[in-house]
Write a protein that binds this DNA or RNA. Structure first.
Lengths: 197, 197, 197, 197
DNA sequence: TATGAATGAGGGTTCATTCAT
DNA sequence: GATGAATGAACCCTCATTCAT
């Protein structure tokens, strides 16, 4: 009843939401949005289906929050990267390597890709996802520009180059869906090399 | 025995199958495999649901045939391209431009991508899709190798470069899902330019 | 056009109907009426489904004809048995042995049993089946009566005894459904022995 | 954690399952397994189809549970009968009379018979049904053996005699399917009399 | 908060039957 | 007679969501 209790309750709630999303990410990434039921998500989180609806008022809202959180995390990461005291090409190599290595990025890409075609998802949410995606392009474009200034990176619109890099990484990421591995090696260095002058 | 022309019947059947698939491609690409019901497909083809099952014994088989057909068509195209009497970079530019322009390629990519995560699709079919995809990489790798011999294309494993090009194109293609357009220009020339030495 | 041709056509038709039923009996007996589709029956007979409907105007009619034929054949058999120049107990033993051995009897029993509970079958047909069954009881009752006159068979209403014998044989027959074999030996002699004074 | 009484919930669930099965028995017995839809069963139980699947994950499981329960109940009954302080022939007469009188036995027999030929039913379940059936034969065989020791029952393998008695009763029971009544009287006394020396 | 029973629309699939060729 | 395309109702089952406890 005291403010402190209310605060603690809110924190507890946020923590629970976070836990649910953590366990949901891999389930959804692995099975696809359409094939993942709310029961699946509840079971993965170890709670009842009724309780799940206490934290998310619908499947759509759950996805919305999940995507927002993931993209914001990624956005912070990429903005930190921009500020690092490293040569631009090293930054791009690091970004690429992380993306291809960190499993959560794979899951996020799978889900984002899924969102595009799922009719469970409202137009509004799809727009939001796209907007955040576009925002997150800026720091990479900035790195590209810096590389161009140094004469290390190919000419062209930096945003376009950033878009190409991210699309390439995501295209490659999607090839790593279970049961779909194309037998061709992928390395961060050779990818970044495409952008080298 | 039969008062009907068996040959003509077979042709008629093949034609009908082809028509159904033609109308199904865009429906599935637009809504996703999971969200596209057999009723949707039947309606798009202008036939009854029962009759649809006369031509495909399951949704899975329909997808299998659709993917096989699409990938074979694409394979022939890319093999013809390889044999063209043109410089390698021109071939790559033509390939990229076609891919980004021809709407059917967009649809095919969307569906292929969907197949990877859909649990409606058996492992076997996913393997087949991947195998055909890998096969279709060879002619492009061959073009890359030719370009390297001429000193026009960057060094590296030609198959890997082909894989990168195709993944990039597909990554960009996926961005073109309805309601998901990222506001960044995409041109074949600047894409191919990444592979230029 | 000549009467002879019409006759020959009719004979041909009857022969065809007989062939279809012959191949249908085991299919229906094995899978059950409900699980056997008209397509199954057509395939078993090696004809098209459309053609099947030229010979039987519905699944129900096919079953009606099949049952009528089977029960009439059985009726003739049992009436011949009655007229044989053998002791009554030998007749009963022969009847029992034949029933348990001849595979067609098994099939007939399975189908008759199925008819009782299948809602595909009209009340009228079920009544007909029962009536023919009751008629076919008479010769056996007559054998029972003769055995009683000789003091070899237990007392009681001969029709009731016949009903018991047939019900017992059928009860045992049903145990022989594939995948349902009860591991207890069954012999004609010990069955008939139940009715011996 | 749970604000509900877990024990009471389990009891409630078991009770509900029992209620559903009770109402399902006669529906299935009357129409046959194939012709009885899950909708029929749900309606008979006064619940929604979705809720029915909350208690049984498939039609097959429902049948499995139903059969298991019925055969276990019958098994207990027959084992109690064996322990009664009565002459063997009286026990057999009581068993026969009960079987022919208690309506639930009729229903059970109809369903068991149906299971044999229904392709909806897995081989495993059919085996289980047969095994339980065979187990339930033992107490009756034991009664037969006791009667033989007293010189009241015919010679022969007691298990075989038990099998004959049960098959006869079941054969007669099946004749009582609605719309299939054979116009011959059936009495427990005259049935048991077949087994008297 | 926490649970799981309850609902019903919708999805994939089957099948008896009809009909044009 | 012979064929198989065509139809649509019905079946089994799933699932997002609500609600009483």
């Amino acid at each position: 009843m005291s403010p402190r209790n209310v605060d603690r309750d809110m924190q507890h709630r946020d923590q629970k939401i976070s836990d649910i999303l953590d366990s949901a990410v891999y389930t959804i990434a692995g099975k696809g949005i359409g094939a993942t039921s709310m029961k699946d998500i509840a079971q993965a989180a170890g709670i009842s289906i009724g309780n799940l609806y206490h934290y998310f008022k619908s499947k759509e809202e759950l996805l919305d929050v999940l995507l927002k959180r993931s993209q914001q995390n990624y956005g912070e990461l990429v903005r930190e990267l921009e500020r690092l005291d490293e040569p631009p090409l090293a930054k791009l190599a690091r970004l690429t390597r992380d993306w291809l290595t960190v499993e959560e990025n794979w899951a996020l890409t799978m889900i984002r890709q899924n969102v595009r075609t799922s009719h469970l998802i409202s137009h509004q949410i799809r727009r939001d996802v796209t907007d955040r995606f576009t925002d997150n392009l800026a720091p990479i474009a900035s790195i590209m520009a810096e590389g161009q200034k140094r004469g290390e990176i190919k000419d062209g619109d930096p945003t376009q180059l950033a878009f190409y890099l991210v699309s390439l990484i995501q295209g490659l990421t999607l090839q790593k869906a279970p049961g779909y591995e194309v037998p061709v090696a992928v390395e961060a260095q050779s990818i970044v090399n495409l952008f080298v002058k």
